[in-house]
Deep mutational scan, measured.
Amino acid sequence: MLDDRARMEAAKKEKVEQILAEFQLQEEDLKKVMRRMQKEMDRGLRLETHEEASVKMLPTYVRSTPEGSEVGDFLSLDLGGTNFRVMLVKVGEGEEGQWSVKTKHQMYSIPEDAMTGTAEMLFDYISECISDFLDKHQMKHKKLPLGFTFSFPVRHEDIDKGILLNWTKGFKASGAEGNNVVGLLRDAIKRRGDFEMDVVAMVNDTVATMISCYYEDHQCEVGMIVGTGCNACYMEEMQNVELVEGDEGRMCVNTEWGAFGDSGELDEFLLEYDRLVDESSANPGQQLYEKLIGGKYMGELVRLVLLRLVDENLLFHGEASEQLRTRGAFETRFVSQVESDTGDRKQIYNILSTLGLRPSTTDCDIVRRACESVSTRAAHMCSAGLAGVINRMRESRSEDVMRITVGVDGSVYKLHPSFKERFHASVRRLTPSCEITFIESEEGSGRGAALVSAVACKKACMLGQ
């Protein structure tokens, strides 16, 4: 009897593995994704193909990295998701002549009506938060230079001027797309009239992360975010950046690689679950690469896999709870928690219980395998993109072996128990001629924006502006 049951459990697990095998990517698959990513990057950089390229390769006008001589107080704003952060950054000489960066910050959550109302409502709310922060720190009387981390696709015309191309991540505030974001912020500050600010720089969160990590390690020339969304930036040779005049030196390019796949480059790798996630998203047909990796989508992918296993009578005796059938019910943090389970399955059992399920031991094991399959594919897909960037940098610099540091931020990278190990191992397999160091950014977005502002202020002083 026991043997029969054991055989049935083994057969069930084997069927589960057959279904989950769809998520496995072979090294040849990853090399294919990497080569296609490089081709799209090239198209994004070139003037004649930029418009139709899915990977936009947006110039950021960040050319210099901090040298350690900029000092002063800077205000930093960070808008990239449902939370908005205001930070005071003091850049100065530390002990023994070292450079020191001290920060104080406060988080504000953005109400739904500000995210989806008008641009005026959104930026009025942001300036209200700045006003509140300055009151708390008794700094209303000071006109501070301000660095703005704005983590949406922007076409820069200068370091302090950028046109919002399109909202992502659930934002829909009308009247912002096609307009200068810094102008919208300046107008809102003017409307309030109770404080003055000098907006000197606007950067993407990947750029802010790279600059913040450069402060720790001067070989950091790539910034990457794996959180709600997924994106990367890197220092490109100016001669390859056709959208900006000049051939000397390097400029940081914001790849906006989340949109890779929007022209069909990933079609052969998309599964039924991916198509369902895409169809029910706020932007169907867009940001397809990001939807395979980002935390906004990972939990939902797992939920759809679990429903398939229920329908195949391989999980929960073929019956799903009402909660499990509800879109968004299986949160991405559950994926991390399930994979963090120590082996007694308590954590998995508790999560499934909150979803109205009474799982068996085998159910718990199957749910864990589903989570591992989805998150491992995410790590491997992400590795193909980064390997594409790094191999490109090595080739354009004609280096036999390139040493490089990548600064990384984002909740999936930082909080998932195995993502970074799987990701690092896969990147290294795909970049055999590179020695890569990964560092995690601390308060990256805010500190990085302030350091970019410090560079901009120093330049302005040198130019006598």
Rank of each mutant, 00 (worst) to 15 (best):
L2V: 14
L2T: 09
L2H: 12
A6D: 15
A6S: 13
M8S: 14
E9H: 09
A11L: 13
K12L: 12
E14Q: 15
K15V: 08
Q18P: 07
A21E: 14
F23R: 00
Q24H: 15
Q24T: 07
Q26E: 14
E27N: 02
E28A: 08
L30V: 12
K32R: 07
M34T: 15
M37Y: 10
Q38W: 13
Q38R: 12
Q38V: 08
K39G: 06
M41Y: 10
R43S: 11
R43I: 06
R43P: 01
R46C: 09
R46W: 00
L47Q: 15
T49Y: 10
H50D: 04
E51P: 10
E52L: 11
E52W: 09
A53K: 03
A53S: 03
A53H: 02
K56V: 07
K56T: 03
K56R: 10
P59Q: 03
T65P: 05
T65R: 11
E67Y: 09
G68E: 15
G72Y: 01
G72N: 00
L79R: 06
G81D: 10
N83G: 12
N83W: 11
N83V: 10
F84E: 09
F84N: 13
L88W: 12
V89H: 06
K90S: 08
V91Q: 07
G92C: 10
G94I: 07
E95H: 06
G97N: 07
G97R: 09
W99A: 09
S100A: 10
S100P: 06
V101W: 08
V101E: 14
K102T: 06
K104A: 06
Q106Y: 05
Q106M: 10
Q106F: 09
Y108K: 06
S109V: 12
I110S: 02
E112K: 15
E112Y: 09
T116V: 08
T118G: 08
L122D: 04
D124R: 01
Y125C: 06
I126P: 00
I126Q: 01
S127T: 07
S127N: 06
E128Q: 11
C129S: 11
I130C: 07
F133N: 02
L134A: 09
L134Q: 03
H137P: 01
H137Q: 10
Q138R: 12
M139F: 12
L144Y: 06
P145Q: 02
G147F: 07
F148W: 11
F148E: 01
F150M: 13
F150L: 14
V154L: 10
H156G: 14
E157T: 14
E157I: 11
D158I: 12
I159K: 15
I159T: 15
D160Q: 07
D160M: 04
I163W: 11
I163Y: 14
L164K: 15
L165E: 13
W167S: 15
T168E: 15
G170H: 15
K172C: 14
A173W: 12
A173C: 09
S174E: 10
A176H: 10
A176N: 10
A176D: 06
E177P: 05
G178T: 15
N179Q: 13
A188W: 03
I189C: 13
I189K: 05
G193F: 05
D198S: 14
D198R: 04
V199S: 14
V199H: 10
V200G: 11
M202V: 14
V203T: 12
V203W: 05
D205K: 08
T209W: 07
S212I: 04
S212E: 07
S212K: 01
S212F: 03
S212G: 10
C213W: 01
Y215G: 09
Y215R: 05
E216S: 11
E216T: 04
H218Y: 13
V222Y: 01
G223H: 00
V226G: 03
V226R: 00
G227Y: 00
G227N: 04
G227D: 13
C230V: 14
N231C: 06
M235C: 00
E236I: 03
V241W: 01
L243M: 13
L243G: 10
G249Q: 01
R250E: 01
M251E: 01
N254T: 05
W257E: 01
G258T: 03
A259C: 14
F260R: 00
F260H: 02
F269M: 14
L271P: 00
Y273M: 09
S280D: 15
S280P: 03
A282I: 08
N283H: 09
G285S: 09
Y289W: 13
E290I: 04
E290K: 04
G294E: 05
G295A: 15
G295K: 11
G295T: 08
K296T: 13
K296N: 14
Y297F: 12
L301P: 00
R303D: 01
L304F: 13
V305A: 07
V305N: 01
L307G: 08
L309K: 00
V310Y: 12
D311P: 02
E312F: 13
F316A: 06
H317A: 13
H317T: 15
E319R: 06
A320C: 14
E322Y: 04
E322S: 13
Q323F: 07
L324P: 01
L324C: 05
L324R: 01
R325I: 14
R325L: 13
T326A: 10
R327C: 13
R327H: 10
G328L: 12
F334V: 04
V335L: 09
V335R: 00
V335A: 06
V335S: 03
E339D: 08
D341P: 01
T342N: 03
G343K: 12
G343V: 05
G343P: 03
R345F: 13
Q347Y: 13
Q347G: 14
Y349G: 10
Y349M: 15
I351V: 08
L352Y: 03
S353I: 07
S353D: 08
S353F: 10
S353R: 03
L355W: 03
G356S: 07
L357Y: 11
R358T: 10
T361Y: 04
T361P: 11
D363K: 00
D363V: 03
D365R: 05
D365V: 09
I366D: 03
R368H: 05
R369E: 11
A370T: 09
S375A: 06
T376S: 11
T376P: 00
A378I: 05
A379V: 07
A384V: 12
G385C: 09
A387C: 12
G388R: 01
M393L: 11
E395W: 08
S396E: 14
S398W: 09
E399D: 14
D400G: 07
V401S: 02
R403I: 13
I404E: 00
T405K: 09
Y413V: 07
K414P: 02
K414Q: 04
L415H: 07
H416D: 10
H416T: 02
R422P: 12
F423C: 14
H424R: 05
H424P: 02
V427C: 05
V427F: 12
R429E: 13
L430K: 00
T431R: 00
T431S: 08
F438D: 00
I439N: 03
E440N: 03
S441H: 06
S445Q: 15
R447A: 14
A449K: 04
V452R: 04
A454D: 13
C457S: 14
K458F: 05
C461S: 09
